[in-house]
């Protein structure tokens, strides 16, 4: 899957998870930029992403996500293997 395609799908996961249609994420987006994305809801989002792409992150991978770009790279690696 191409990065653009992943980002598009990721955007939909975000919209569904935080129940807002006005969310548009880019690789630079971090928790501070999205209403509702906070330290508590973070793991629900991660779980939503895993379900959507049918992948499983490792604990250490999750701990290192700082922004959407980090997630994107990790998802790309998993979906393409």
């Amino acid at each position: 899957m191409e990065e653009q395609e992943i980002l598009l799908q990721l955007n939909n996961v975000f919209r569904k998870c935080f129940k807002r249609q006005d969310i548009t994420v880019s690789p630079e987006t971090s928790a501070a930029d999205v209403t509702g994305w906070d330290s508590l809801t973070h793991m629900i989002l991660i779980n939503d992403i895993e379900r959507h792409f049918s992948i499983k992150f490792k604990l250490m991978e999750i701990m290192k996500f700082n922004n959407v770009g980090d997630m994107l790279a990790c998802i790309k690696k998993k979906v393409n293997t």
Binding site: S39, H42, M43, I44, I46, N47, E50, L59, I62, M63
Partner: peptide, 9 residues
């Protein structure tokens, strides 16, 4: 908190 919730996500 964070690792715990990550494991139990």
């Amino acid at each position: 908190f964070n690792p715990l919730v990550a494991i139990l996500r």
